[in-house]
Design a protein around this nucleic acid. Sequence first.
DNA 1: GCCAACGTTGGC
DNA 2: GCCAACGTTGGC
Length: 139
Amino acid sequence: MAYWLFKSEPSVWSWENQVAKGTDGEEWDGVRNYQARNNMREMKVGDRGFFYHSQKDKAVVGIVEVCAEAHPDSTTDDPRWECVDIRAVDPFERPVTLAEIKETPELSDMALVTNSRLSVQPVTKAEWKIICGMGGVVA
DNA sequence: GCCAACGTTGGC
DNA sequence: GCCAACGTTGGC
């Protein structure tokens, strides 16, 4: 199983919005970046991901699960763009902020730190465990 | 609100 | 195929 990170501006699509969709999940649509799309093409059902709030929060707030593999993005007719469906699994007991992540040497290679504009990014198993621990949930 | 970083577009 | 111009993202 692979691990990922999904970034969203909460005023556009928040963790609360995601939770409200329940176990059916929702398309992670609107991605118009090849790197992010390619990451989504790699995803399998059951893969896990962090849900990250950009801008105001700048924190990982919960865990999601991929519940449908890459398919055409329904928000565009352009066949280049695909997306997966994800559903909320577990909220963090407390958010893990970008500042905390930057202060943690083991997390300094994360795309969140090195390529802040990439909206869908891979996470290593080691990084996954550390951040789950910081967030107060079992990896 | 500003600006740096990055990706995309389009003219040549 | 190169590169300048432009638009967007996201941290500060």
